[in-house]
């Protein structure tokens, strides 16, 4: 079974690298947020697979905690940028009114 875990973790690692590249080159801020969210989800999966690969089921607790933190973090960042976009639209309207 080891090679199956190994292959799966390699696939997840490649995807994490691709997500990081997308986060670095992403043209909009939302591409970067998407990449960070994806990276976090893949980290959860990677920790789960690694806990089986190394035979230490304690890692699953880390995966669970990481999932919680990832979700809260993404939502906080999104709230910040969403309110910024709405505020900028309002400013553009005010400029257009002048």
């Amino acid at each position: 079974m080891e090679w199956v875990y190994f292959g799966t973790s390699i696939a997840i690692l490649v995807t994490m690298v691709l997500a990081v590249v997308r986060g670095l080159i992403g043209p909009t801020i939302f591409d970067r947020v998407l990449a960070v969210n994806m990276f976090g989800t893949k980290t959860v999966l990677f920790l789960a697979v690694i806990s089986f690969l190394s035979g230490r089921p304690d890692f699953l607790d880390l995966a669970l905690a990481y999932a919680l933190i990832n979700f809260i973090g993404v939502l906080a960042v999104l709230l910040f940028f969403q309110s910024r976009g709405v505020r900028r639209d309002a400013e553009a309207e005010r400029e257009a009114d002048k």
Binding site: T28, F30, L60, L78, Q82, G85, D89
Partner: peptide
Amino acid sequence: IFLFLFLTSPTASYALANAALLSGV
């Protein structure tokens, strides 16, 4: 972990698409 991911990832996707649409992507 499965349940949590399946509750949160649609929420995060919705919030992301909503924020992107609001700021005019």
